[in-house]
């Protein structure tokens, strides 16, 4: 009896050990670090209580960052979860089955390319003088729409968000295709017999049937958009004038360029708090997670 109880524990022990060493311990340390301020070279730590947080909440950049991350999250949810499901449903439709493999593959290819490569690729596309996008706009007579996409504070963050969507939508489509394929065919047959049109079938059968997958993807995209780093770092490094700064790049700037590790820790803790809130809210609202 005793033996059977200890064996499962031993099996999860290595994973637990690793997790506590590399996730939980740094997490706790970081919570503590948020209350200190020090310099990476001397390491004399001084306790500053909540000053890091009051400074953060007074910092106008913090609100730009928050706004940018929210834009990221909303646009990602609409395009990746919303449009992703629509594309998946279309690809799985009887009419499209023949081309489905081709489209699935082409949507998925960007997922396999490194973000750094994509970033450099898109910085060529966005180049104001010789870039593909501006040249295209000029060629079709929309020259006045040509912009310094990554250099204009109004467009920079959206130009970056677009790149993320371009890359990640294939991933969402792939997962939704799997989920749609799992939906029992009888349901669709029954709906057709009952006279439901394509739109009705989509909303009454596909959407509720893939709810679990939607939930998973929602958490994935929302937390993902609060943790986004590479896209922004490679394309704009948060510029111009902080207009495309997001949480991770702001944290990076504070920790590694401005040498303020304590302040950076407090930013990290705020990110943790926000993503946790999102997780719990979604968990509560969608009331799923049993599967």
């Amino acid at each position: 009896m005793r033996r059977t109880r200890i064996i499962p524990l031993l099996y999860i022990a290595p994973a637990l050990l690793m997790l506590s060493l590399f996730v939980y311990y740094p997490l706790v340390r970081n919570l503590v670090n948020g209350f200190y301020e020090w310099n990476p070279f001397t390491l004399d730590r001084s306790f500053v209580s909540i000053e890091n947080y009051t400074r953060l909440f007074k910092d106008p950049v913090f609100y730009t960052v928050l706004k940018n991350n929210l834009f990221y999250a909303v646009i990602s949810v609409v395009l990746q979860v919303g449009l992703g499901l629509v594309i998946a449903a279309i690809l799985e439709d009887k009419l499209f089955r023949r081309f489905s493999t081709f489209f699935r593959t082409s949507f998925f290819i960007p997922v396999l390319i490194s973000m750094t490569v994509i970033g450099i690729l898109f910085s060529f596309i966005y180049n104001p003088e010789v870039g593909l996008l501006n040249s295209f706009l000029r060629a079709i007579g929309l020259g006045e729409w040509a912009e310094g996409w990554l250099g204009n504070p109004k467009t920079a963050i959206f130009a970056v968000i677009f790149v993320s969507q371009w890359q990640s939508i294939g991933y969402a489509v792939m997962l939704f295709v799997l989920a749609v394929q799992k939906v029992p065919g009888e349901l669709y047959e029954a709906a057709t017999i009952d006279g439901a049109g394509k739109l009705r079938t989509f909303f009454s059968i596909t959407v509720p049937q893939v709810k679990e997958m939607t939930f998973v993807l929602l958490i994935y995209t929302v937390t993902g958009s609060f943790l986004v780093f590479s896209e922004v770092y490679v394309l704009t490094s948060g510029g111009p004038a902080n207009s495309s700064q997001v949480f991770s790049t702001y944290l990076y700037q504070k920790a590694f360029i401005d040498s303020e590790p304590g302040f950076a820790s407090s930013i990290a803790n705020v990110i943790l708090g926000i993503t946790l809130i999102f997780y719990f809210v979604q968990n509560k609202v969608l009331k799923t997670g049993e599967e």
Partner: peptide, 21 residues
Amino acid sequence: LNENPNASAHDETRNLFIGGK
């Protein structure tokens, strides 16, 4: 100045200068 100075990297503009632009 060129139209979007904030959107170009320094070495890009150097190459444009070398290209006579």
